[in-house]
Structure formats: structure tokens, C-alpha cells
Design a protein around this nucleic acid. Structure first.
Lengths: 204, 204
DNA sequence: ACTATATTTAACCAATTAGTTAAACTAAAT
DNA sequence: ATTTAGTTTAACTAATTGGTTAAATATAGT
């Protein structure tokens, strides 16, 4: 087998495992099911990953690095405040659209070992967005925006971007929205979320 | 044993189970651990609840009914729009403050059996808030508020109220916020969330 | 006192499951 | 041709776990 095919196998295991972990959570996931979904057998699965825990942790760590390098970096960039909010929200939602597993994967384990989870966050380079928070304080001082706790603003942005992905199955069920329509609804939020945020910042 | 003590045992099992399910999820929860946490033995646990699944479903159903009767009813009341938004947000956050287990409990199983979960929601009487959505449409038509998709507004309210409870451990960890301070931060949101929502509704 | 029910103890079973092992097979690389 | 590494098959083990059972004990209501 070529090194290329080896990468293929490895990759298909990671994707399979990711899917199973998302659907079943860590405790509910079965190594056999992961092997099946990857189209291989259990022996080979253990040949690549020595056990369930390291497999899980590798995926988690990859996921966090993806989040960090894929979007959170935007928060430290040099744009002005409103531009940054618009860019970030839109890009964050796009990012979650093409990485739907991410939220569920992390959410599933959020109550399991919180300390460990936070350690992984920091090890993946995820930290409070200092640059953005300073910008907010500056604009507040200049009187350009309403007096705002930067942490609340960040929390609001994250809430509005992420929650619709978390609550998707419930909202779809309760509001009787089809998958396609729900996706369109999310699509519109790329433009709307930043405007809602900004209108809450503007002085009345 | 009196009927009262019997109720006590039953109740302590439900609370114990709830805690264990929140921390470990359905698959990760152990009947032995639930028994231990309830201060009884496994035999007695099965004497009260015939198996893990029914125990879990009873708790889930109770939780959903609590949400429905505790807060969602507000959405169907006769208040005017802004008043309703203020009342609802504040009350929802209060409710989650005193029922912290609720969000985690539901979240843990959201990817497990989505159809079943939605069935439970409807059986608990949880449905789209027609009254509120009509109010929004009316106010939009009257030109009192910006043109707004009612479903987006509901989603925004839920996002801003619920997400801080979901993301608590991560936000605390990443922003280095202590439990007490985080609670104060949430406390402030009771007044602030509705104002953010309302300012996003007002015409510029 | 008698009954019915709550509770404990302790052993047990059957099924599941993470992980192991060893032998055989395949195919690329040298 | 030989080596090396990926892969399969198939059986196995050791531990865990949901659930059961039966006998003994406790206790409240009658």
C-alpha cells in the first residue's frame, strides 16, 4: 500500500469516528461501528489508533485547531469594529455550515470533563479576543457606541451565530421547517446577525 | 414506609438520575451510579423504575413539561410586544438559573434520536408561539418595527437567553471568569437581552 | 398480631464491548 | 526475490453493565 492510501485509511477512520461520536457521544460510540463506517475492520482500527480515547482526543484537538485557525483569528485582525463584526459573523456561520459536526462534537462532551476540555481549548490557541475587546472599549470611550461590556457583546455574537446550529433539530421540529428552508434561514443570518448586533451598539 | 417516604425515595432517584444523566449522557450514565447518588441500592432502583430507558424518558418528559408550563406559556399571553419580550427574556433566564440541569439534559440527547425528541416536545405541549409571531407580523405591517421574520426573532431571543448556559464552562475557561462573576454576568442579561432585541426591532 | 410494602444484601446471568493476538494475504518498494 | 507495511479474518479475553432473583429485614397501617 502506498503512503497515500495509508493517509486515505487514516482519514476515513477520522471522518467515520467523528460522525459516530457526534451521533452517539463518546460513551455511546462503538469501535465496531466506527470501523464499519470507515469500511474497515476493528483490528485495523486499533492498528491506526491505539484506543478509543486517543482517537477521540485527536479529533477533538483537530476540531479546535480548525476553529481557531479558521475563524477566531479574524477577531485579532486590523479591521475597524463594525467591519470586523460583519466579516466575523458571516464567516463564522459559513464555517459552521461546512463543518456541521463541530458544534455537536464539542457540545456532546461539554459536561463530561470540563477541565480537560478547557485545557484543549487553550492548547489549540483559543483565548479571549483581546484585540476585539479593546476595540469595543475604545469605541465606547470615544462615545461612538453605547456603553457595552465587551464580554457580553462577544457572548451575543457567539450566541446568534452558533445556537441555530445547536437547536436545529428542535427548531425544525417545533416550527415544522424543512431542512432546505432551515438552511436558507441560516443563510440569511450571515447578513442579518451582524446588523442586529450593530443596531444594538448604536446609540438611540 | 409511609407514602410520603416513598415519594421521597422516588424523588431522590429522579434527582440523582437527572444529575448523572447531565454529567454522563444517557449512554455514559450507570444505574449503579444513579443508585449510589440517590443513597439506595440497585435492586431498589429497579423496584421503582423498571429500566434505564423509562427512567430517562420520565425525566425528559418532566423537564419538557416544566419548560412549557414554566415559561413558554408567556408567549401566548396578552401583553403588548415589547412588554412581552421584556417579561419573557427575564423570566426565561431566571428559569434557567434555577433549573440549570434542563439545558444540558436536553442538549446531551439532541443528536441521539431526534425524531423521538421532537415527539416528546409536542407531547409536552411545546409548539411554535403563534400568538407572538402574529404580533410581530402585525407590528411589522403597522410599520411600528423593522421588517422582521418572526422565526428569526424567536431564534434570536432563544439564542441570547439559552446559549450562555450551554457555553458556560467554555466561556468561563477561555475568558477566565469565576463562577460568581459569570452568574452576575448572566443576571445582568435579564435586563439587557430584551433591550438588545428591541433595539434591533426599532427602525433606525 | 398480621399484612403489605419498602429496603437491603448478595449473588447471579446474559449481553456487550474495548482491546488483543496470531496467522494469512496483498501489494508496493527496494 | 525479498522485505516491509497495510489489511483481513476470526477467535479470544477480561471487564463492565443492565437487569434479575430470592431471601432476609424493617416498618407503617390495619
Amino acid at each position: 500500500m502506498s503512503e497515500h492510501e495509508m493517509q486515505n485509511t487514516r482519514e476515513s477512520i477520522l471522518i467515520a469516528a467523528r460522525n459516530v461520536f457526534v451521533k452517539k457521544g463518546y460513551a455511546g460510540a462503538r469501535m465496531q461501528e466506527i470501523a464499519d463506517e470507515a469500511g474497515i475492520n476493528k483490528a485495523l482500527l486499533h492498528y491506526y489508533f491505539k484506543n478509543k480515547e486517543t482517537l477521540f482526543e485527536m479529533i477533538l484537538f483537530e476540531a479546535l485547531k480548525t476553529i481557531q485557525s479558521g475563524i477566531l483569528v479574524v477577531l485579532e485582525s486590523e479591521m475597524d469594529l463594525f467591519e470586523k463584526i460583519r466579516f466575523f459573523c458571516s464567516r463564522y456561520i459559513s464555517f459552521l455550515q461546512s463543518n456541521t459536526y463541530l458544534v455537536s462534537f464539542i457540545l456532546n462532551e461539554i459536561n463530561r470533563d470540563q477541565e480537560k476540555l478547557v485545557k484543549y481549548f487553550t492548547r489549540a490557541g483559543i483565548k479571549a479576543p483581546e484585540k476585539l475587546m479593546i476595540q469595543i472599549e475604545e469605541e465606547t470611550l470615544k462615545g461612538n457606541i453605547r456603553k457595552t461590556d465587551p464580554r457580553q457583546l462577544v457572548l451575543n455574537i457567539l450566541s446568534l451565530c452558533i445556537f441555530p446550529f445547536i437547536a436545529r433539530p428542535i427548531v425544525k421540529g417545533v416550527f415544522r421547517i424543512q431542512e432546505k428552508e432551515y438552511n436558507e434561514l441560516i443563510e440569511r443570518r450571515k447578513k442579518e446577525v451582524p446588523e442586529w448586533i450593530i443596531s444594538s451598539l448604536k446609540k438611540e
